[in-house]
Write a protein that binds this DNA or RNA. Sequence first.
DNA 1: CCTACATCCTCTAGCGACTAGAGGTGCAAG
DNA 2: CTTGCACCTCTAGTCGCTAGAGGATGTAGG
Lengths: 140, 140
Amino acid sequence: MKKITIGEASRKSGVKVPTIRYYESIGLQPEPNRSEGNQRSYELADLRRLAFIRHARELGFEVEAIRTLLTLQDDPHQSCASADAIAKARLIEVEQRIRSLMALKAELELMVEGCGHGRVDQCRVIEVLADHGQCSHPHN
Amino acid sequence: MKKITIGEASRKSGVKVPTIRYYESIGLQPEPNRSEGNQRSYELADLRRLAFIRHARELGFEVEAIRTLLTLQDDPHQSCASADAIAKARLIEVEQRIRSLMALKAELELMVEGCGHGRVDQCRVIEVLADHGQCSHPHN
DNA sequence: CCTACATCCTCTAGCGACTAGAGGTGCAAG
DNA sequence: CTTGCACCTCTAGTCGCTAGAGGATGTAGG
């Protein structure tokens, strides 16, 4: 039985040390055993769980969604309908976000192109910001 | 000289009342005059400034960037190079964000497609999250 | 003039998901 | 045995607001 310190767990899972402690404090990661000197001692299952959390966070899932996904993972016999629903909801969010960022990009490009690199009173960046009516695309 | 209350200013600028007070507290919006009964009284210039801020926030500029843009706007004789640089930086951020969201979208689509709507132990959503190696695209 | 009622005021605390720092303890190498 | 890093707990700060308490002001109708 090898003892994995929090530092090693961090390196192996890609989750920063204070973040691991934070996940423990909010009950996302279970409290590990402690060494004689009160230091956290992790096991392989913990590393897997941390990697799962990290990957889900990278995919933009909220902590509450991850909490649900983790309880699903812990009990593999139930239906995966919730997991599917969570992923689908996230997909819709992401698609929405991409659409609005594309509109944004178009507007920023117009601003930057229009800038004659002169003085502020001829600057399209400032002008467009000052007057939303000049916007090509309304925002959502 | 008409007196514009904070509520009217909110309606006309599209910035919520508590948000206007918040902007004032962080020095983004100047302190307006007060009525006899200590109520804020705005002028047209304030409405313009608030609309500017709101538009810039919609475009995702951070408050500190907006602070710079506002000082540029206040003094229209200086070069617009900074405004241009801020807008360009924001454009790059947005492009980056779009790219990473596209990768994300692809990954989420694979997850959702792969889900056979059965039990969790056959669920691709959970499986992909558990093992980053199955990812088609690495994240940045 | 009085009463409702909306709107205004200040102040503090909370959100999400961490991150930073202070001040102290454990542990392994030289 | 000391050096120095990694660990511990705890509190407070980040960003850009938002919510709520508890009270004052302003306006319209009776």
